[in-house]
Design a protein around this nucleic acid. Structure first.
Lengths: 340, 340
DNA sequence: CACCCATCTGCTCATGTGAGCACCACCCGC
DNA sequence: GCGGGTGGTGCTCACATGAGCAGATGGGTG
């Protein structure tokens, strides 16, 4: 018998063994009797079948996760944790799944944060909604960047923080300030205000931060809210901005796209996010791949909650800061509001 | 905690457990530690996940089989054995798979038949080709129905029998006669010939029969071979013929469609097939569902080798002899030569 | 022709796993 | 409030399984 013969014969045997084991629930011993081989050989055949991919095991469930991708992400980007959900075809569904996953992560995260700093946006609001009542006990919540009072949906930012706190039986502390001020002096003045300053100080002491990110295009919530004009966005994109993190626009290099604008942006700084023990980024969808990449490759988050496609896009990048990324392409990608 | 809550919570736990068990190869004990439940609960969660179909195990291989369907077929139709292969989209591929499966069955069948009676046709030829050299030792082969000498492919019938015998190191005995004679007297005369009579006697003593079946339409090999005219076929179809078994046209009731024609057909009779310990039908493809049903529901085969779609079609039939089958529809179904 | 290396085989033994069982908590009707 | 269910839990124990190893096999090479 040539080696080729025995390999082929083994493959057939392996298929038979796999059928009997996985479909007929027979023991390896019984299978051995049927196929006229020893039970040890059956075990080996099954091992081979698994290795060669003859046996495909799939977990079909909306709440399933992609643990292998999670491990790869954590290893590649030095994350403390990663959560990757299978991506449904539907973008709306995808956002919902990612948000649910973030809520799940929060619920089971230990140690429970005493104080949780949160940003706002559609994604974060979904996370808040996905949290079960009583998801934790006495977790207080503090906003980490200026609100959305000018928005078409007033109160969303506040509602998000309040909901998260309420469901954990804690208190929410809101940051009573616009996201971006028109003049630097105003920003400094507001920052100096005891109330605002106090909230910012509290935010700096949070034990974990939960935030999402927005895309640098004209559908940004900053444009909707009137903080920025489409022209401002165009200028940011020209300077290489890929999106915003807690209201601050960054480039693919992970640096501030426009320092002047950034100085007028009120809230936690990027360095504080980077230094935090637990900074949890919740982000999903094609349009956000560039900003997700910028955040993840430059250490702005320590936990990433995302979808399978985003995860693969991040892992496929051979050089995250490759210069052939044409930034203006990003401004044209379709995307929905979600910020800061 | 309401029952609904605990059910949902269990489902999530089950998904997590399944991921850790099947994708991460952790032990139930380790999973218990991670999910903070006892290892027995992990076992139960996994059992639930399997029951609910959260875990899908699939065997992806061209030689895979459908054991559940095989069992159902055997039970429903009182077969000694059944082989069902997954159906590829491609009809040519499907015929190849079914033939391979038949060859596999022959190779591993015990007891090894001393003498194997074979029919002929494209399917049987493929089976012969799929058999490995040395598939058995000293199995002699005998043709069980008249040959195809008038055919466009002279010698195929003989080649099939010879190849099967040769590969098992045995002798082939051919039936030197046309399949259908023009006159009854001629048929009786040939049958009485010592050579032909001897072969027929030998065929009656075979320990197993291997055959396929043809569809009753104008693409039948009997038309190609000149044994029957398209008009003959039309007449047979009018009488309810669905196809032929070793040259004999039968109706959905499993009876001879045209006794006069049948009397002129030389070879083993249906009753001899029915009485045989091992009569192995190799049949696949959409067009052959009606004739397969006729054969299987009327006990003409004891072993069925087929494809998944045919198997399901056979099992879906609530009443195989239901009168609302319009026989002339069958004549219009596309089909390729394969007979008798 | 003898040797060697690589692979495969059947085994022992430790570990992993599922069936079955006693128990407990909770829910419901009385 | 109280028994009787009903479903879930943790356990024992027997069985199934995989790791690791010694010996066999077989094909190629000096």
């Amino acid at each position: 018998m040539t080696p080729a013969d025995s390999t082929a014969a083994n493959e057939l045997l392996a298929v038979r063994a796999a059928e009997l084991y996985y479909e007929e629930n027979k023991t390896q011993d019984e299978i051995g009797a049927i196929l006229r081989v020893t039970r040890w050989k059956v075990g080996r055949l099954l091992a081979q079948a698994r290795e060669r991919g003859i046996i495909r095991i799939e977990i079909v469930h909306p709440r399933a996760r992609r643990l292998a991708l999670e491990r790869d992400l954590a290893a590649r980007f030095g994350l403390k944790d990663a959560v990757v959900v299978p991506a449904p075809a539907d973008e709306v569904e995808l956002q919902a799944r990612v948000s649910e996953a973030a809520a799940d992560w929060l619920v089971s995260h230990r140690p429970v944060p005493r104080l949780l700093g949160v940003s706002w946006g559609r994604t974060l609001h979904q996370v808040a909604e996905a949290l079960p009542s009583g998801w934790s006990t006495a977790v207080n919540v503090v906003q980490i960047n200026g609100g959305v009072s000018l928005s078409k949906r007033p109160g969303t930012a506040a509602a998000t923080a309040v909901m998260i706190a309420q469901k954990a039986g804690g208190q929410a502390t809101l940051l009573p300030s616009p996201a971006i001020l028109e003049r630097l002096e105003t920003k400094k003045a507001i920052e100096g205000d005891r109330t605002v300053g106090g909230v910012l100080a509290m935010a700096r002491g949070a034990s974990a931060y939960l935030y999402s990110a927005g895309v640098a295009d004209t559908s940004s919530v900053h444009v909707d809210s009137g903080y920025l004009t489409p022209a401002d966005i165009a200028r940011l994109v020209e300077r290489g901005a890929v999106g915003d993190v807690i209201g601050r626009y960054i480039t693919a290099d992970g640096t501030i796209a426009d320092p002047e604008l950034d100085a007028r942006t009120l809230g936690l700084g990027l360095e504080e996010l980077r230094a935090a023990a637990w900074s949890i980024l919740v982000i999903g969808g094609e349009a956000k791949h560039p900003v997700a990449r910028a955040i993840v490759t430059h250490g702005l988050c320590s936990v990433l909650v995302t979808d399978e496609h985003t995860a693969r896009a991040l892992l496929d990048e051979h050089d995250a800061s490759s210069p052939d990324l044409a930034p203006h392409d990003l401004a044209t990608t379709a995307s929905r509001e979600d910020a800061p």
